[in-house]
Design a protein around this nucleic acid. Structure first.
Lengths: 178, 178
DNA sequence: AATCACATGTAAGGCGTTACATGATTGG
DNA sequence: CCAATCATGTAACGCCTTACATGTGATT
């Protein structure tokens, strides 16, 4: 599933402009999928060419014309086929965790700071999900929102309980002074 | 941090060939970073040009020469600078969760199957991490290994407790028959 | 007879981001 | 007055994967 396909999916929920689709990515899908204008606008043009979406222009005063996209029935069928396929594996890459794999090369203070900042970041993400969660309409969206909260919470607890494993190494130097 | 930099990091742990570096990615870093030969070999060539690693060839009978790479002191300094930088945000993309956001378009059986398979997959990943974990040498590697187990476990529990939110929608059709 | 492990590489292409280009309106 | 929101797009480039190319030896 690429960004093009997900644009199609978003249009199953109702007509939208490219700008609005971008906002949907940011506000409702950010946990699991990111997309920039540089992907979205070309995707919509291609989908239009292929007859998977249709486009009507709404002229506005003193603004560029708004292009409102609607999914066609061909588009609906294609999207259905896509989601019936076995989804590809998640892609995850963490520079943060990669850095921790070399914690023994870092000063003790740097390790502690990395972990403190991570916990703070996760707490903040949980908070912003909490306020979002209430405003989410569907069960599916609540499911995703709470999924995020659960994962972040599990990470925080893991870091708190296991940070000593990383910090111990770095302390050896100072312990030698005892 | 790109693959090139992580190759440098792997070489701080000891000399290695491109082939061995690939194995390190697969066996010890797969949870957080993936890399193919198509990235690794060109990366090593570039690092050599730049004087960040050195390379000696070991000729073998009936096999291509083995090229054993060692990190230079310039390489060590550069890598240290890299890990002292604030790591970029994690990148996560899940087709699986994106599919679940459109669960209302899927037949009930398909949703249940998706969730069952995910749980099975996560269980299997936990098991393979369990056996790995014991053989891991450093505290850091155990930290990562247990991080993975914890996250997968949290996901399983979340799915078991909340799957009804997704399955309920799909059941409405059959419930109407009552 | 086939597949896996060892061993190195290249080329083409996919997929996506960032930065640029443009410009009005609204709210602080 | 400055930033954010609305609104659309392109071009250049980065980063990485996949598939191809080649070949031996051991295991199943």
């Amino acid at each position: 599933m690429d960004i093009r396909t997900l644009c199609l999916g978003i249009l199953t929920m109702g007509d939208a402009t490219g700008y609005e689709i971008k906002k949907t990515f940011e506000e409702r899908l950010d946990l699991i999928f990111q997309a920039s204008y540089g992907s979205i606008y070309p995707a919509l043009n291609k989908l239009t060419e292929e007859g998977l979406v249709s486009c009507r222009a709404q002229s506005q005063e003193k603004r560029p014309d708004k292009k409102i996209y609607s999914i066609t029935s061909a588009g609906r069928y294609l999207f259905f086929d896509e989601i019936m396929k076995k989804p590809a594996a998640d892609r995850f890459r963490s520079e943060y965790l990669a850095t921790l794999m070399f914690a023994h090369l870092l000063p003790a203070a740097a390790i502690s700071e990395l972990i403190d900042e991570r916990i703070a970041d996760r707490l903040q993400k949980i908070e912003s999900l909490m306020s979002d969660c209430d405003t989410r309409q569907t069960d599916r969206e609540q499911f995703l929102c709470n999924y995020g909260r659960t994962m972040y919470q599990a990470e925080i607890e893991y870091l708190q309980e296991n940070r000593h494993l990383l910090e111990a190494d770095a302390l050896l130097g100072s312990r030698a002074a005892e």
